[in-house]
Amino acid sequence: MKSFNGKVLFLDRSDINTDEIIPARYLTEITKEALTPYLLEDLELAGFDAKRDIAPAGAVMTRANFGCGSSREHAPWAFEMNAMNIVIGESFARIFKQNMFNCGMMAVELAPAVIDDLMARFSGRETELSTDLATGVFRFTAGDESLEVPFEISEFDRALVEAGGWVGYADTHY
């Protein structure tokens, strides 16, 4: 099972599409590894600097409709290759969310008010996420401030995470 812990990258915008996550000009690559340097290259977000912000991060927090647009699984792969296996947001585009769990990664929804609160408390600060999948609790820590937030994922999504993705699951079930 993948790790769902690490520094949090705050992307405080809705409707971030998969063209921004990984532009089509890199879809000619046939290995996941080759996507590593291009993650979020075309993201339009004030204060965001891909070179500075991506490398240390292990998790993403964002707003609504993350991953809309193209079905390209290159988007989850680009996160995966940068050791970012979890995106937390208000909502996700269907295909992106499915692709994340299909890769044994997580796309977890929290209520907008909870995201508001977390953004207000932690955005702009060096924040660490630790995920307890068994109990369904996120712990956010920055300096001496720490906050626990419960989360839910479906039984099926949990099974995919535990199986390391949909290929492993489907191969044993169908």
Binding site: S71, N99, N102
Partner: peptide, 18 residues
């Protein structure tokens, strides 16, 4: 429906999708 590569891969292999 549009899907990602993993759904496609399982579709190719097993002829099913979730």
């Amino acid at each position: 429906a549009g899907v990602g590569t993993t759904d496609l891969e399982v579709g190719i292999l097993k002829g099913v999708c979730a």
